[in-house]
Structure formats: C-alpha cells, structure tokens
C-alpha cells in the first residue's frame, strides 16, 4: 500500500494534479485495474505512517483557496527525497525479481 501511495503521489505531481486523499485513492485504483478505491481507514492510516516516517510531507492548502472554490480544504502531499529513494529502491528490487524468474527459452530442465 505504501509504495502504491508513493507512486501515485509522484504520478499526480508529474501530471500537475494536486495529490490529496481522493486523487491518490483514484490514482491507485486506475493503476491497479479492477481494484476499487482504497478504504478511508486504510488510505489515511498509511498516509499518516508515510508522513511520520518522513517519506511524505503533508500541508493543508490555504483556507481561502478552498472557500473560493466552495469545497472543504485539501491536505496536499509531496514525496520527500527519502520517499523518492525508497520508491526507486522498491522499483529496482521488483525489476530484478521479475528478471530473475523469467524463464529462458531452451534452457529448461528436461530430466
């Protein structure tokens, strides 16, 4: 869940979309087709854990912005250097694990 969140925040920031609770949940659901939106409790508990561990920083947007648009204020998240590094390490591990288990044609044991 934590890596999915980090990845979603990075993607949202890259696409110039504000990363806050709902957009993060929607981004995770889009990345993992067939999966619904992450449960409130699971999402915000994980976000809190990531902020505590220094992988994300959170800041409430200015109340005037929210009032101007007639909606509740959003808590915006940003990936820190430590979070980006952890995400990169996870991606590398996933990549090396997938290449390690890729069967090579013609080299399978026959006896």
């Amino acid at each position: 869940m934590e890596y999915s969140i980090l990845s979603a925040v990075v993607e949202l920031s890259a696409s110039r979309t504000d990363p806050y609770g709902y957009t993060i949940a929607a981004s995770i659901a889009r990345a993992d087709e067939g999966r619904g939106l992450t449960a409130h409790g699971t999402l915000y508990k994980a976000l809190g854990r990531l902020v505590e561990s220094g992988m994300l920083v959170a800041a409430w947007e200015a109340p005037e912005t929210a009032e101007g648009e007639g909606r509740p204020r959003r808590r915006l998240y940003e990936v820190t250097a430590a979070g980006a590094k952890a995400l990169q390490t996870h991606a590398n591990e996933k990549l090396s694990a997938s290449t390690a288990f890729t069967p090579v044609p013609g080299r399978l044991a026959t006896s």
């Binding site: 449960a39 409130h40 508990k45």
Partner: peptide
Amino acid sequence: LTRALTGMGADVLW
C-alpha cells in the same frame, strides 16, 4: 459505503 466499512478496522487500529 464500501470504502467506509472496509476501512473501519484500520480506523480503530489508527
């Protein structure tokens, strides 16, 4: 409703 209900356990743990 699904998001609220399935997250209740995590809410209590939090």
